[in-house]
């Protein structure tokens, strides 16, 4: 089961959707790990004739199935960072009618979304679907460092070492949630960590 029902939250927290085929000649699809399932669900032969799939496998074996969809272009890479310059290059030549589909972890969708908005695609025009891990990409509001794959609350900032609690306040520009010092008013008093959605 790779689908997760996120609890209701504040207005800055992104709400992920379900991918649907859209009109347009060009379809850019970016997914990581179980995000591949959402692409497999939405794919049609018509979409695939104009599709460019960028897949970050993260140890999963969806590659063969995605390749079998026969997209116009296919790329599989080891990490988002490795794929980033390719994504930027593709967006550079994109047309206004290019449709973007993102699926997988919040970190992947958030970072790819940021590339899209930098290129001039409104975030509301980019389709998303969450699949797989619910771990978060967190920014420490104090040192500004990003800690990836945070699944527990509170957690230790991987840069400055402060104990941070996990907020739902989310920045599209940073593609990250906000982490804030939990023991500022009572240093050393840090409650035991729990899963974010426990």
């Amino acid at each position: 089961m790779s689908k997760f029902e996120f609890p209701q939250s504040i207005r800055s927290r992104p709400v992920w959707g379900t991918l649907e085929p859209r009109a347009g000649k060009h379809h850019l699809m970016i997914a990581d790990a179980q995000g591949a399932e959402a692409i497999l669900d939405v794919a049609t032969p018509e979409l695939m004739t104009g599709a460019h799939i960028i897949f970050i496998a993260k140890g999963t074996d969806y590659g063969d199935k995605l390749r079998a969809l026969n997209p116009a272009q296919y790329y599989e890479g080891p990490s988002y960072e490795a794929a980033a310059s390719r994504i930027q290059r593709v967006l550079q030549d994109a047309k206004m009618s290019t449709q973007v589909y993102l699926s997988g972890t919040e970190s992947l969708m958030g970072q790819a979304m940021r590339e899209c908005t930098n290129a001039g695609i409104p975030y509301t025009a980019v389709q998303t679907e969450h699949r797989g891990s619910t771990a978060r990409r967190m920014q420490c509001v104090h040192c500004k460092g990003i800690t990836e794959d945070v699944a527990i609350d509170p957690f230790v900032c991987s840069h400055c070492g402060l104990n941070l609690f996990v907020r739902d306040h989310y920045s599209r520009r940073l593609a990250a949630y906000q982490g804030v010092c939990i023991d500022a008013e009572d240093p050393g008093n840090v409650p035991p960590s729990k899963g974010i959605y426990e």
Binding site: R11, S12, Q139, H169, R173
Partner: peptide, 14 residues
């Protein structure tokens, strides 16, 4: 630094 780029409802979300 965190809220820059947000819309009215987003930066007031908390």
């Amino acid at each position: 630094d965190f809220d820059i780029g947000m819309n009215f409802f987003e930066w007031h979300a908390p």
